[in-house]
């Protein structure tokens, strides 16, 4: 690049983008590099980080707690997709209807999105209390379990509460997607004598292909970031029954003061998250962002 006078034809000075670039660089790009560096260092969070080589990596990848966290993360990712995707799709199609009562229902469906994860977790902790919660109130003994204290149940509770929080958002995406499907497709199908079920499988579902990919990407990558909800709801317990990777990272770093190993887990999260995003993005083709945006 040569030193050229600021020609007016070139548009605004790049300096106008400098504040955004500086903030983003300092607090997002630098930490992203930093996490890789720290994964090779030993740091207790107070003193100065010391070089530790590949030691953290070796210890983290053989740590039964972290390995269990990986297993749980895979389970959470798969099961929450299996739960959320069909429910969101069904609700989205339902919400896309223009009947008045559906509009009212849509307003109510949206409510969970207003709560912070901490608020949701606190409410469900009280609601699931075996002695004073939902079970005794409804008089259904089956519901009066120690939902959060029982290692066999806690993970399912977490999965349900995650669904409670995120299904509204995904059904909004599907609602937008369904409303974009051209009416002519349904008219043609009707003339051909296609029933409602056939219409759903031959028109609605294929037409929603990109919405499904977008929503699924968000669900899968989101599974790698569920932290606050589980942290407040179960704290990773009982035992390590709900300690998924993001939580394992936090607890390793800020409870066991082993920032090096926490950084190793962070690097794994970044790599897996980027990998999944890119893979699914390839499925959907380029520039999905822009055309998706038009629908909302």
């Amino acid at each position: 690049m040569t030193v050229a006078p600021p020609a007016p034809a070139q548009g605004p000075s790049l300096w106008m983008a400098a504040p955004a670039l500086a903030l983003f660089g300092l607090f997002a790009v630098v930490p992203l590099g930093g996490v890789l560096v720290l994964s090779f260092m030993s740091w207790d969070g107070l003193g100065d980080p010391v070089w530790a080589g590949a030691d953290n990596w070796g210890r983290t990848l053989t740590d039964p707690v972290t390995l269990n966290a990986m297993r749980l993360t895979v389970i959470v990712t798969v099961v929450s997709w299996l739960f959320q995707a069909p429910v969101s799709l069904l609700l989205g199609v339902f919400m896309a209807g223009r009947q008045r009562y559906r509009a009212v229902l849509s307003v109510l469906y949206f409510l969970p999105l207003l709560f912070s994860a901490a608020a949701v977790a606190i409410a469900f902790r009280a609601l699931l209390d075996p002695n004073f919660g939902l079970g005794p109130a409804l008089g259904v003994p089956l519901l009066a379990q120690d939902w959060i204290g029982n290692p066999d149940l806690a993970l399912w509770v977490v999965l349900f509460v995650i669904g409670w929080c995120f299904v509204p958002f995904h059904s909004l995406l599907y609602q937008g997607g369904v409303r974009q499907i051209p009416a002519s497709l349904y008219e043609a199908a009707l003339l051909d004598g296609a029933g409602r079920v056939q219409q759903f499988f031959h028109i609605t579902l294929p037409q929603l292909k990109y919405t499904i990919i977008t929503s699924s990407t968000l669900m899968i990558v989101g599974s790698l970031t569920y932290f606050d909800l589980i942290f407040v709801l179960t704290g990773g317990g009982p035992g390590n029954a709900t300690r998924i990777l993001p939580l394992d990272m936090y607890l390793t770093g800020f409870r066991s003061y082993d920032m090096g190993r926490a950084s190793v887990i962070a690097v794994i999260l970044v790599v897996v998250g980027l990998g999944v995003s890119l893979a699914l993005n390839r499925l959907s083709g380029a520039n999905r962002m822009e055309s998706q945006m038009e629908g909302v």
Partner: peptide, 17 residues
């Protein structure tokens, strides 16, 4: 590129910074 960075994963270096 920044859209794909999960905040959680950078929390340790952000804390240091």
């Amino acid at each position: 590129l920044g859209i794909a960075i999960p905040i959680q994963a950078t929390i340790v270096p952000v804390y240091y910074l």
